[in-house]
């Protein structure tokens, strides 16, 4: 297991380095002179030079990358050109909305998908399965931000159960904060839960056809016991992979859905930064998002190793 962990850690570090190189190259090398790009066509050469100086954009690409990456390691994402504050500070504020939202949605996804997938697999071919398959087929097809609008229409406009948007901040207490994130989290979670429930169902049905399930039944286990004691753990392995992928969808979805609910998260920050050509902010936020995706997939790999003893030995 330690060997497996060491290997995964090494590949985690390499992935992060590779991703940071790609992001750096797109933002700071492709536009030619980022400072000139940020100021637009009408900027004077003096102003461009001054900005370049201020942002630390002088020097070779290689040395700039090392500076930037070194800064990242210490939590320094550079200076925002429009806000005139450290990018880390901006991110620090906004992440308090986006990350909890994505995590909330992931929890809901799992809480919905696991039981639903399990029921569908246990009742495969029967009406309950049929209903679940039809409902999830629809759930997959619904864009989350549109679903969010419908939720606003129903729960905020018609029923007045929730406010239509905005975020009171965590200072107002955990309950108020969670309440403000509930509709967006539901909107994010239902389509993903539909996918996960279907993956769970088909993976469980696959494992139910394995020889060892027949062995278990020959030992005297009931159908339900065979499903819960043998199929579940084996069937969970592909489900984990999909969960890792889903986190990146949830994170991207969170950024889009913030628009529907006027949430002051990373999405607002980054879309403003794009229109204002604040490349340093874009670079920082993108790096953070990619970092989150890579780390979550690393954790999935570890969970894999825990779930499947065959993986611990080899590779």
């Amino acid at each position: 297991m330690i060997r497996y962990l060491a290997r995964r850690l090494l590949s985690l570090a390499l992935s992060l380095i590779a991703a940071s190189i790609v992001i750096f190259a797109v933002i700071e090398i492709i536009p030619g002179d980022p400072a000139a790009y940020m100021l637009g066509l009408n900027a004077s050469p003096e102003a461009v030079a001054a900005l370049r100086d201020q942002l630390g954009l002088n020097g070779t690409a290689f040395s700039r990358y090392l500076d930037w990456a070194g800064g990242l390691l210490q939590g320094d994402f550079g200076q925002s050109y429009t806000y005139r504050v450290p990018v880390a500070e901006l991110i620090g504020e906004r992440i308090q909305v986006s990350l909890p939202l994505a995590a909330y949605a992931l929890v809901l996804t799992v809480l919905i998908a696991f039981p639903v997938g399990l029921i569908a697999a246990a009742r495969r071919g029967r009406p309950a399965d049929w209903g679940i398959m039809a409902a999830t087929q629809l759930g997959i097809a619904i864009p989350n931000f549109w679903f969010a609008m419908l939720l606003v229409l129903l729960f905020a406009v018609k029923l007045h159960w929730f406010s239509a948007g905005g975020f009171p901040g965590w200072e107002g207490g955990l309950a108020a904060g969670l309440k403000a994130l509930t509709l967006p989290a539901i909107a994010l979670a239902l389509p993903q839960a539909s996918i996960l429930a279907r993956v769970m169902r088909s993976s469980l049905i696959d494992t139910l056809h394995q020889d060892y399930i027949r062995t278990a039944r020959a030992k005297g286990l009931t159908r339900r016991q065979a499903l819960l004691r043998h199929a579940l753990r084996n069937g969970l392995i592909p489900v984990l992979t999909i969960m890792g992928l889903q986190f990146s969808f949830l994170l991207a979805g969170a950024i889009i859905i913030e628009n529907v609910f006027f949430l002051p998260g990373l999405g607002r920050l980054i879309f403003q930064a794009i229109t204002q050509r604040d490349l340093i902010v874009v670079e920082g936020v993108v790096m953070l998002l990619v970092f989150a995706v890579i780390v979550v997939n690393f954790m999935v790999d570890i969970a894999y190793g825990a779930a499947d003893p065959r993986l611990r030995r080899r590779r």
């Binding site: 394995q210 062995t215 005297g220 286990l221 009931t222 043998h230 084996n234 779930a307 003893p309 065959r310």
Partner: peptide
Amino acid sequence: MCDLRGREMAMISQEPMTALNPVQ
């Protein structure tokens, strides 16, 4: 039948590679 299987009558099958649960 579940009560009888494993207690009164038991079975082993052909393929030892797949007949056991790999994660137990």
